[in-house]
């Protein structure tokens, strides 16, 4: 029987198995003590249930030996747990020197990743298998937290300083990446994937990252960016309500703004709203969108505008 399969997600990083070993140890020790204490209690309440004619009970209120035993044994056990956990924790804190450096920036409500050599991605972190990766974390607004359950790694992303997490993935595949520190309306949608690929594929991806795929139409590229740049977190493309206005049928529509004026949605309004979202907020929505200045290149903005234009109501 392996209790960890019931309780823990599959271990996919080098540190995970070490964490899981301690988890098993504490788990089994807990079960033993639980059976001892609660089993003892159950035995007593049956054995010593009140019977007819019970009178005085014995004065049994001290037993130095027993008390020493039940103080010392748990104390030793928690010391073992303490040192064990601290050892692993130290490993988690100190990244190997040759680790690949990736910058992760949390922001309401998506993750942006910047790789060496100028590549970048949003909503998906691409890392090579079998190489240590150090993630340098920060936030553009409130506190977020970088959490990959399969890797047993978690670290807060703070707005005023850098924090660090590292891991070495052991298997290729796609793993969930959550934001674990509450950050508002879209907190539960601040999801991303970690895609672990073979090192060669990682290199290839780094090279190809910056250029627009040649065989792709602009609006198709926009549709791809819509997902990878996390527009989808707040804006639906099927008319359903979200944190921001749905993109379906948005282009060409006249919107009422918060200050009472109106605006017709055209290319310039879309561009302004991407780069300076707080300038003209549609009535009924909160001014919560972050600026995409510095995140999207001109060509990407063009593609997104093309995509939004393509989403016409039937």
């Amino acid at each position: 029987m392996n209790t960890n399969d019931i309780f823990l997600p599959a271990a996919k990083s080098t540190i995970a198995s070490e964490v899981d070993a301690l988890f098993s140890f504490v788990f089994i020790a807990s079960i033993l003590f639980f059976v001892l204490v609660i089993g003892g209690a159950l035995y007593f309440i049956i054995r010593y249930r009140r019977r007819k004619g019970d009178g005085y009970t014995p004065d049994y209120s001290h037993n130095t030996k027993l008390e020493v035993v039940w103080t010392v044994i748990p104390t030793i056990l928690v010391f073992v747990i303490f040192f064990w956990s601290f050892k692993t924790y130290l490993k988690m804190q100190v990244a190997p020197k040759d680790a690949i450096q990736i910058k992760a920036t949390g922001q309401k409500w998506f993750w942006q990743f910047d790789y060496p050599e100028g590549a970048s991605s949003t909503g998906e972190l691409i890392v090579p298998r079998g190489k240590p990766v150090q993630v340098l974390l920060s936030s553009r607004d409130v506190i977020h937290s970088f959490y990959v359950p399969n890797f047993r790694v978690k670290m807060d992303a703070l707005p005023n300083r850098y924090t660090m997490a590292w891991f070495e993935a052991t298997e290729t595949g796609e793993y969930d990446l959550f934001c674990a520190e509450y950050c508002g309306t879209g907190h539960s949608k601040m999801l991303a994937k970690v895609r672990v690929v073979e090192p060669e594929e990682y290199q290839r991806w780094l090279q190809s990252n910056n250029s627009l795929p040649e065989d792709m139409a602009m609006d198709q590229y926009g549709a791809q960016l819509y997902k990878t740049k996390a527009c989808v977190t707040c804006h639906t493309n099927d008319g359903a309500p979200g944190t921001g206005p749905s993109f379906l049928g948005l282009f060409g529509r006249t919107e009422n703004l918060q200050d009472g004026s109106t605006v017709t949605v055209d290319e310039n309004y879309l561009r302004e709203s991407i780069l300076n979202p707080q300038a003209k907020v549609v009535h009924g929505f909160q001014p919560v969108m972050p600026t995409y200045t510095g995140i999207l290149k001109d060509k990407e903005i063009d593609a997104l505008v093309m995509y939004i234009k393509s989403l016409k109501k039937e």
């Binding site: 964490v19 303490f82 956990s85 601290f86 050892k87 692993t88 924790y89 047993r152 790694v153 978690k154």
Partner: peptide, 8 residues
Amino acid sequence: GALSLDVH
């Protein structure tokens, strides 16, 4: 309370 478990 165990540091390495708490991270997860």
